[in-house]
């Protein structure tokens, strides 16, 4: 557009409206003018963008970026949100830390708080091994059934979470299944292991060779009863499983039992004392206890 040469705009014959002078394949663009304030709003957004440029991180540098006058970062915003949340929960958490667990279950408000907080903490800390719903997996105990290796009362659950099982903590729950069939001079011979496995099968009323099982009874009494009890009911002090019920951490068939007797068993659960605070551990105990398997 030149400032000296002006010419009259073309007028569209059908509508009588001026065209912009642009024409594509004979199709002319009618000039329907926008209101001026529309244009001013557009300019205002450009001015506004300079404000953004100054206030927020905007320009990449060689190794970093400009930080903006307030030093705002999205990461910092999340951190401050989390701080706010912690502050918001601090009253309840202080109360929870000082409260015996038995009282928590009787206080509906604290119970709701602990359950909600426990659910989130469970997802963060427990779900990778025990499953999102606490259903467990082979080698990782189910937390929703009524069978507990170390006790299913709420205080016992809290202790397990705090100190772990066969963990590095001094107060850890310790005790492991002995390996009876490894090494140069194994404690039990191969046929003895077969026999005791058959006997263990009968404890939970499973099919087994009657003769072999009969022979295994003596082997059991000598080697196993010390931990698993004379009747095979287990011992929660030692974490020795109940062999008479229908729940098997590593499988209920003979092969799994033989493998356990030969090689021993001893899964590890880390201690959470020192990793997460007491109030959160208490919340976890409350949450796990009410999942479905907690013992009154």
């Amino acid at each position: 557009m030149s400032s000296t040469q002006t010419h009259a705009p073309e007028i569209d014959a059908v509508t009588g409206t001026a065209t912009t002078g642009h024409s594509w394949d004979g199709i002319a663009e009618l000039n329907t003018p926008l209101p001026k304030w529309w244009l001013w709003i557009f300019y205002a957004t450009i001015v506004w963008s300079f404000g953004y440029f100054v206030v927020y991180p905007s320009w990449p540098l060689a190794t970093s970026h400009t930080t903006g006058v307030f030093g705002w970062t999205s990461r910092g915003e999340v951190a401050s949100d989390i701080e706010d949340l912690k502050k918001l929960r601090s009253g309840n958490n202080a109360k929870l830390a000082a409260m015996p667990l038995a009282d928590v279950t009787k206080d509906p408000q604290m119970l709701d708080f602990a359950k909600a907080q426990g659910k989130a903490a469970f997802g963060d800390n427990c779900a990778p091994c025990h499953g999102a719903g606490g259903g467990g997996a082979v080698g990782f105990p189910s937390l929703v059934d009524d069978d507990w290796l170390w006790g299913g009362k709420i205080d016992q659950i809290e202790q397990t979470i705090k100190f772990g099982v066969r963990s590095a903590h001094a107060e850890t729950r310790a005790g492991a299944m002995t390996a009876f069939g490894t090494g140069s001079s194994p404690i039990l011979k191969k046929d003895q292991i077969e026999q005791v496995a058959d006997y263990v099968l009968t404890l939970s009323k499973q099919q087994a060779d009657a003769k072999s099982a009969e022979a295994g009874k003596a082997v059991y009494a000598e080697n196993c009863a010390v931990c698993h009890g004379d009747e095979g009911k287990g011992n929660q002090e030692l974490g020795a499983p109940n062999l008479t019920d229908g729940i098997w951490l590593y499988g209920k068939d003979k092969a799994a039992i033989v493998y356990g007797v030969v090689n021993g068993r001893g899964g590890v659960m880390p201690n959470f004392a020192g990793r997460i605070d007491d109030a959160t551990i208490k919340s976890l105990a409350v949450y796990v206890h009410q999942l479905g398997g907690g013992v009154k």
Partner: peptide
Amino acid sequence: TGEGELYVS
């Protein structure tokens, strides 16, 4: 004379 305005008051 001149071209049509694209914006109007």
